[in-house]
Design a protein around this nucleic acid. Structure first.
Lengths: 128, 128
DNA sequence: CTTGACCATCACATCAATGTGAACGTTTCA
DNA sequence: TGAAACGTTCACATTGATGTGATGGTCAAG
């Protein structure tokens, strides 16, 4: 698969795929013509990267913890150094905190929308 | 309260507080000497802004939906235009999606950490 | 062979969030 | 009164994640 198809399948722009490569998050093969060649696994990989970026992790951290989250999970963590595990645990906790904040904000939005909706039916609100 | 204290109480740098003001997210009063004067409500306000930014909303969107989320909730939504409500609903849904992704990632991290921990106790892993 | 759809690199632009520092006024307190 | 701590504006710089466009190579189909 070349960059265009991967872009289509992941929703990440070509530019962004090249950026991830520049940041050493992925290392696609190159065809004889210089074209990047991605195999199936890159679809998940890209989605995972985007999820982690979305979680607020910077690329340099993602680069470190990504090997821990590789697809054939388990029986695979031979080279996880204690520091990497600590880093991973720290980031997970930070992520949990962020999730809490986000959930609170979403709930506040929902609450507001619900109030407005509730108020629009009985036909009385505003100054009441 | 002046900018230093607000900074201390919210964790946002003075610089950032001025930046939010520049982005029209907040409009603090000014004392006769030109100093910014913030009242208590700004503490929550700043935290809310940071939460929304953290949620991935750009400042220009936050500026629009923030009035909807104001502190004395309810009996306050007289000027919410239909477009604002639609925007708010859209953003809430996007936020929900993001939360799902984040939760999945956190769970993957936890799962990995749990596996490593489980494996370290029985004193056999790696090549097994 | 040419056209169109790909691909490549390079470079410039933007946006959010920050840092830094200059140059300067204010408040407080010993 | 003078120093320390705090405030102001302005401006330039950087970082991370992206967008956009220029310029040019590759390749398949008409």
């Amino acid at each position: 698969m070349r960059i265009g198809e991967l872009s289509r399948r992941t929703g990440a722009s070509r530019r962004l795929l090249r950026y991830y490569e520049e940041q050493a998050l992925i290392v696609p093969d190159r065809g004889p013509n210089g074209y990047r060649e991605y195999d199936e696994r890159y679809v998940d990989r890209i989605n995972q990267i985007r999820g982690l970026l979305d979680a607020g992790l910077p690329t340099r951290i993602i680069k470190q913890i990504l090997p821990c989250l590789d697809k054939p999970r388990s029986i695979h963590f031979p080279d996880a150094t204690p520091q990497m595990l600590a880093l991973l645990a720290t980031e997970r906790d930070r992520l949990s905190e962020r999730i809490d904040v986000l959930v609170r904000n979403r709930d506040a939005m929902s609450e507001y929308l619900a109030e407005v909706a509730r108020c629009r039916a009985p036909e009385d609100c505003g100054t009441q």
